[in-house]
Design a protein around this nucleic acid. Sequence first.
DNA 1: AATAATACTGTAATTTTGTACAGCACTAAT
DNA 2: ATTAGTGCTGTACAAAATTACAGTATTATT
Lengths: 209, 209
Amino acid sequence: MKKELTLRQIEILTFIEDFIRDNNYAPTLREIATQFNMSSVNGAKTHVDSLVRKGFLKTGNNLSRTISVQQNKYSEKNESNVTEIAVIGRIAAGYPLLAEENVDTRIMIDNFLLKNAAKCFGLKVRGDSMIDAGIFEGDIVIANSEEKYQNGDIVVAKLQDEATLKRFLKKDGEYYLMPENKNYEPIPVTGREDFSIAGKVVAVIRMFN
Amino acid sequence: MKKELTLRQIEILTFIEDFIRDNNYAPTLREIATQFNMSSVNGAKTHVDSLVRKGFLKTGNNLSRTISVQQNKYSEKNESNVTEIAVIGRIAAGYPLLAEENVDTRIMIDNFLLKNAAKCFGLKVRGDSMIDAGIFEGDIVIANSEEKYQNGDIVVAKLQDEATLKRFLKKDGEYYLMPENKNYEPIPVTGREDFSIAGKVVAVIRMFN
DNA sequence: AATAATACTGTAATTTTGTACAGCACTAAT
DNA sequence: ATTAGTGCTGTACAAAATTACAGTATTATT
């Protein structure tokens, strides 16, 4: 399946994006068809379906005005835009990491700083296990929950209902979480049931005072 | 006409706000009614009508899912505001540090992260002189140009038409710029004409990749 | 040369959704 | 004491919107 968009699809995607920005709600298929002088709603529908299939839009089923933009790499306005991301504070045991119960606050992040900010979340750093990587207690790390992590990446891992920040390492077929602090030991996690990786760290924010 | 909201109306307004944030589209009257265990859509409708009348919501006529929030002074999340700050890149000799000529890009910073963001600017870090303070090459430091700096603060200093990042130290009546890297020597700056302090560092942002 | 994808028209069924009206109980303001 | 506003239930209807299906023509792609 082709993932690139045609000129027409870009036009339609851009119209939808602009419409939502201007009205705070999404256009209907009829409104899209009218805008592009199509006499049939289905013209708009097939385009929207294609854009959904290619991952640029998302829609609800049988629900009106539920088109939302997932990404638009063809838009020039992407620069000075911001996305709100949730910052996870203390973890409530039993809940998924990104559950509302764990959200401490929300901050706006410039899209220039973060690609795919919509898939990112923040985590307040506790402890000093990553001090040698320049990540200190109180810092906020930003992690992308969808980006593929590789050997050597710093990740947010969930271990026994605790979110921890470590470097992910694969060695001789075994997996480890490596602290960046000589005072701590590597944690072997191969096959552990209570272990999962929530995201790859893509940024660190530190505030003084 | 009363302009204040009742508890119930605040509840409903908040639900609508949260719903839109989570779904990227507005709830229908039925969805609101269901959420609040009302057996009639009209229960939701009268509330929404009241909120529109009082200026908190806006809706289209006969259009589905067109509720949008105009204001919500009852929401605690209202602080989530952003300020655009300039990021200084390479310094053009002869210009003031914050001159337009030196601006590399602009980013949006959440006011929650930064007090008095309007007086702040960013600086792309070059070199490794602050590596022991966890500030690496490529990081963006945010400095407040108006905040009073004290002995021991990390500051953005201008030295010979170069912006540098150092810890400011006062010892025995003499002033020094201290690198945080054993390989570099302190720089005495007492009485130097080509020296000035542009701002006190209040935050560091680091992006991976 | 064959196939898949694009880019529509046109009609119609189905579902979703907003609106209207009648009514009731309770509360706050004048 | 009366009125306006709140906070609903319940029924019904009409408008709005999505979806489905049958086509046609054109443009890539293999």
